[in-house]
């Protein structure tokens, strides 16, 4: 058996030796656990889970995105809240969400149980889409020049604050929007 030396000293001679019984047991447990975690993420959850990370995205010119979002607002606006347009898109339709320092626009009114495709982008700096429903939240990154595409199905009615969780300037803490889910 090779001699063992302190971690601070230069080992002399041959120090390579086979694993003992204890180490072999532990290494096997660890390898199995690592594989189990990968299988969970790559295969099990995609089959059984209701919450999937299947974001898609495309590049966009920020000005073009703003124009599309404004057309969307003009088409489906149903009212105003605190001076921000409230929009009720058709069930199953696209929802444009326009981020800028320091506001989310528009306020979105959804129906419970319907599926919507969110198209989210920023017209200036990076922002963070964070829909807060304590004790949980749903978070995706929002970059200027990219559209983050996220499919969401609200299954609970209520008013949900939409906050920014990527630092976007000195008014970062002023940036809040809202999603309203009706029955």
């Amino acid at each position: 058996m090779a001699s063992r030396v302190s971690a601070l000293a230069k080992p002399r001679g041959v120090w390579w030796e086979g694993l003992g019984r204890d180490e072999r047991l532990w290494v096997w447990l660890v390898v199995i656990w690592g594989i189990a975690m990968f299988v969970m993420i790559a295969f099990v959850w995609p089959l059984v889970g209701q919450e999937q990370n299947r974001l898609s995205s495309y590049r966009v010119d920020p000005a073009a995105f703003v124009a599309e979002a404004e057309a969307f607002i003009a088409r489906y606006q149903v009212g105003q809240l605190d001076g921000i347009p409230v929009v009720a898109p058709p069930p199953g339709g696209d929802v444009y969400l326009d981020a800028r320092a320091f506001a989310w626009q528009p306020v979105i009114q959804l129906q419970r149980g319907q599926t919507y495709r969110f198209l989210i982008s920023s017209r200036d700096v990076q922002h963070g889409f964070s829909l807060v429903m304590p004790p949980h939240s749903i978070n995706v990154q929002v970059l200027p020049g990219y559209v983050t595409v996220l499919t969401l199905t609200p299954e609970k009615a209520g008013e949900f604050p939409l906050i920014c969780n990527e630092y976007c300037g000195l008014g970062h803490h002023l940036m809040i929007g809202r999603i309203v889910v009706t029955e």
Binding site: L81, D82, G83, I84, A103, V107, G128, S130, V132, M133, P134, P135, H136, S137, E159, P161, I163, C164, N165, Y167, H172, H173, L174, M175, I176, G177, R178
Partner: peptide, 27 residues
Amino acid sequence: HWGVPRRHWDITFSTAPALGMNLQELR
């Protein structure tokens, strides 16, 4: 885990110009 963001000065949104909601009041 309850949804409080990092790098954020005020999760009560007391100074927000519009749509303010206090996260601490939610939970």
